[in-house]
Design a protein around this nucleic acid. Structure first.
Length: 433
RNA sequence: GGGGGAGUACCAGAGCGGUCAAAUGGGGCAGACUGUAAAUCUGUUGGCGCAGCCUUCGGAGGUUCGAAUCCUUCCUCCCCCA
């Protein structure tokens, strides 16, 4: 009943490294595997989605996924990233975050069936919190040499003089703590595989090593990593000017979420569609081919954006996002804007940042710079607003304006709204009240 | 404990008495070109009442007509030896 999980990931370009024997193990029997997520926030962002998709494919292949919430490890901070040392999350926040994450994951993985391979969620805080330091160094630390730990890239990098930052003992222990998670799950959940991003390879193999040394089980714990998701231009994946792209609609509106995927470059979209959608190989190849025929249609991006938006949000949210995109980026003209009725207008601009002006001020006819800075705070300084105006980067109700513009009642849409556009893609809906 | 080195704008990193609001690169933003791509090119990237002024070069003092640059002291970090 298992389909070939490894094969599936392979054509999707989701395998960076995998320990020998993993494929055989997965073909042999239903296997339990886990991915770790740090509960640093009460929502997942799209960076997490990669790990989730690995679990999704795993489950679809008939195996059992476990999501490990890193309540304990999250407090330490992985030295692989350049992140600063983390602060301890208090237990209440931790639980809150965990619940929020679970709610989101429930849409993506199947936690609720009676099937033996239903997804599970665990938190390593539960087994780490009462683990005393002495017990830990005796039962776990004994089995791994410092030499072994030092040979990891994540550690070596931080130890080299060029790094210029050093590493605390706490961070150094990170791989051991994470390694112990694997051991724990191996013993209590019969979990034989840990997956993660390629930066996790060192940490994961510390786990497999620990299992071997402590239990003497040869060739029975496995590791699989996927390539770090990058953008073709070398930028960080999943970040925009405004920060992370979250799954929580309160943090990133479905419109913005949809737009993120729609804006991917061709090269990235071709890569992402394999990773983030469940479309079959044939379907994807067909779309890629069609896209190559008529690249300006951007079928690739549209399909990608649609698929992910539906799964993370909903069909309705997708519709909304598509409509809004159409109006904002289609042949939207000033006339079209004026024709929108209030409810359409509001739903279209759901998720677009808002600002306010007072009606009285508006009646006086405001200088555009005053309007942008003092009243609506769309710009933090007048200098910047002027610069942008000079650069021809500001539109009011889809019409380019310059410094001589005055904003007044005549600019109101539906007697209440003004649409300000900064550059091509940044919209602000200003409410007069 | 001893010795050495470093802290500069979003980041990296020059400057080491005036000509420094601070080179250069990256990033960001905008414009042109396009497909709401990519690549490329151009502009811009402390604030203001903007040919002038004000606040910035780890913190606090001091020397000087004048300091990011010199001195004192404090803080933080790194390296080497023990």
């Amino acid at each position: 009943m298992q389909s070939n999980f490894i094969e599936e990931l392979r054509w999707r370009g989701m395998i960076h490294d995998v320990t020998p024997g993993t494929e055989e193990q997965l073909l042999k029997e239903m296997t339990t595997a886990y991915v770790g997520i740090d509960p640093t926030a009460d929502s997942l962002h799209i960076g997490h989605l990669v790990g989730v998709m690995m679990l999704k494919h795993l489950q679809r292949s008939g195996h059992k996924p476990i999501v490990l919430v890193g309540g304990a490890t999250g407090m330490i901070g992985d030295p692989s990233g350049k992140s600063e040392e983390r602060n301890l999350l208090d237990e209440e926040t931790l639980r809150h975050n965990q619940e929020c994450l679970k709610k989101q994951l429930r849409k993506l993985l199947d936690f609720d069936t009676d099937a033996p391979n239903r997804a599970e969620m665990v938190n390593n805080y539960d087994w780490m919190k009462d683990f005393s330091f002495l017990d830990f160094i005796r039962d776990v630390g004994k089995h791994i040499t410092v030499n072994y730990m030092m040979s990891k890239d994540s550690v070596k990098k931080r130890l080299s003089p060029e790094s210029g930052s050093g590493m605390s003992f706490t961070e150094f222990t990170y791989q051991l703590v994470q390694g112990y998670d694997f051991l724990h799950l191996y013993q209590h959940k019969n979990c034989k595989l840990q997956m993660g991003g390629s930066d996790q390879w060192g940490n994961i193999t510390t786990g497999t090593e620990l299992i071997r040394r402590k239990l003497g089980n040869e060739e029975d714990a496995f590791a699989l990593t996927c390539p770090l998701i990058t953008k073709a231009d070398g930028g960080k994946f999943g970040k925009t000017e405004t920060g992370n792209i979250w799954l929580d609609p309160e943090k990133t509106s479905p419109y913005a979420f949809y737009q993120f995927w729609l804006n991917c470059s061709d090269e990235d979209a071709a890569k992402y569609i394999k990773i983030f959608t469940l479309l079959s190989r044939e379907e994807i190849e067909k779309i890629v081919a069609e896209h190559a025929e008529a690249p300006h249609q951007r079928l690739l991006q549209k399909t990608l954006a649609r698929e992910i938006t539906i799964r993370v949000h909903s069909e309705d949210d997708l519709q909304m996002a598509e409509e809004a995109s159409q109006i904002l980026f289609g042949k939207g003209t000033t006339e079209a804007l004026h024709k929108l009725n209030e409810s359409t207008l509001l739903s279209v601009f759901e998720g677009v940042p808002r600002a306010n002006v007072s009606m009285e001020a508006l009646k006086e006819n405001l200088d555009i710079v005053e309007f942008l800075v003092t009243h609506t705070e769309i710009f933090p300084s007048k200098g910047e607003a002027r610069r942008m105006l000079k650069d021809n980067g500001i539109s009011v109700n889809k019409e380019k304006v310059d410094e001589s513009k005055f904003v007044g009642e005549a600019d109101l849409l539906n007697n209440r709204y003004i649409l300000v556009q900064k550059g091509k893609k940044n919209y602000y809906l200003v409410l007069a009240q």
